[in-house]
Computed example of a mutant assay.
Amino acid sequence: MINFTNVHNRKQTRSVKWDILQAVFQSEEVLPMWVADMDFQTPQPVIDALVERSTHGIFGYTILDNDVKYSIAEWLERRHNWSIDTEWLSFSPGVVASLHMAIQAFTEPNDKVLIQTPVYTPFYNVIKKHDREVVKNTLIYKDNSYHIDFDDFEEKLKSGVKVFVLCSPHNPVGRVWHKEELKKMADLCLTYNVLLISDEIHGDLTFPGNKHIPIASLSDEIRQETITFMSPSKTFNLAGLQASYIITADKKKRSILTDQLESQGHHMLNTMGNFAMEAAYKHGDAWLDELRDVLHDHRNYVVEMFSQHTEKLKVIHSEGTYLLWIDCSRLNLDDNSLKKFMIENAKVGLNAGIEYGDEGKQFMRMNIACPRATLEEGVKRIINAVQGK
């Protein structure tokens, strides 16, 4: 049995989540349930591998050898039924860095890049940073879930879009896309000659009854026109070690992307990220299986508590990730007032929905990857604030 109940003190560890509350929320009293890392320790085999490597005491340049690459390939085969060639792998410090590199490598200034909103904030920032045009395929919010507007999706592709950036599973709305949805999106990208970039960093974190399918695994043709971003960082709480990888089957595209990565010095991993990735993928299965059960229970707890105690908050049905998307529209607050309410009344630090685009107005995002005691305290604070206590 793995202990996911211990409350670890993360303050004074230079934690983004815990040590900059004043700067982010203008308060030290909020309970942080925002930025997407977990308050759980990484698997013991990963800790052991890092301790063993650190005792060597020399931290020079390190290579990404076949042991690391095979651990990735075996993980993808074992967990996602996806067989890859290790030659398809490239490496970068993180998925956002990879997105910067890919946008620069495969588009030109003023090119159109399609995203499905509301969506992870860096998608907007990366596209705009490089003077590309953001094109939105707004997801349809219906029946307590989100759905793809395929008519609009196709119209946007027809308009001259060069790249489609898919978020799969989707952050923040929690959708794990079904095979039919993925196939339809991919086929339309093929029809209109649109490069498909897929951020699948949350792919290991799905709830019972939902299975993540790497979109590039659907067919040989789709695989050749897809670039996939993955990382153990969300899965095993390794974000601070900055280790991610890119899967590009098409040799020409891989060469273009590799040149871009090397030109900006983003093609290597730090020593600790290198060893942590291998250990996590070789020895992390049991830990992950239990984590998924914990997160599923946490999701159900939040849904049940809000349902029992208030009609003003509605948790959108989530199929994966450890991020809940909460409809707060019945509070009848504008976005600034909603953010202020959560900070000052509930004393909980959440991500404001408006950060994910206009479609996120009157929503909040909650991180439930924390010990049960922390989760219960956060939920209690929110319910009491809504009830005026």
Rank of each mutant, 00 (worst) to 15 (best):
I2D: 00
F4I: 01
N6T: 11
R10F: 07
S15I: 00
D19F: 00
Q26A: 13
E28W: 02
E28F: 02
V30A: 09
V35I: 13
M38A: 15
P43K: 12
A49V: 04
L50V: 09
V51Y: 10
T55A: 10
D65H: 14
L76M: 15
L76Y: 15
L76A: 04
H80A: 07
W82P: 03
D85F: 05
I103D: 02
A105P: 08
P109K: 10
V113F: 01
T117V: 07
T117Y: 03
V119K: 00
K128S: 08
N137Y: 09
T138K: 13
D143Q: 13
N144Q: 14
Y146A: 03
H147F: 09
F153V: 03
E154P: 14
E155L: 15
L157D: 06
K158L: 09
K158C: 09
G160F: 11
V165P: 11
L166P: 13
P169W: 06
V173W: 00
G174N: 04
K179H: 13
L182N: 12
K184C: 02
D187T: 06
C189P: 07
N193D: 12
E200M: 10
L205I: 15
T206S: 10
N210R: 03
I213Q: 13
A216D: 15
L218I: 02
R223K: 15
G240M: 08
Q242C: 15
A243E: 05
S244L: 05
I246M: 06
R254W: 04
S255P: 00
T258A: 09
E262N: 10
M272G: 12
H283R: 10
G284T: 01
E290K: 08
D293L: 07
H296S: 08
Y301L: 15
M305S: 02
F306S: 02
F306N: 03
Q308Y: 04
S318C: 12
E319A: 04
E319T: 01
W325P: 06
I326D: 07
D327Y: 10
L331I: 08
D335W: 10
E344T: 04
N345D: 09
G353M: 05
M366A: 14
I368S: 06
I368F: 02
K380R: 05
I382L: 13
I382E: 08
G388T: 02
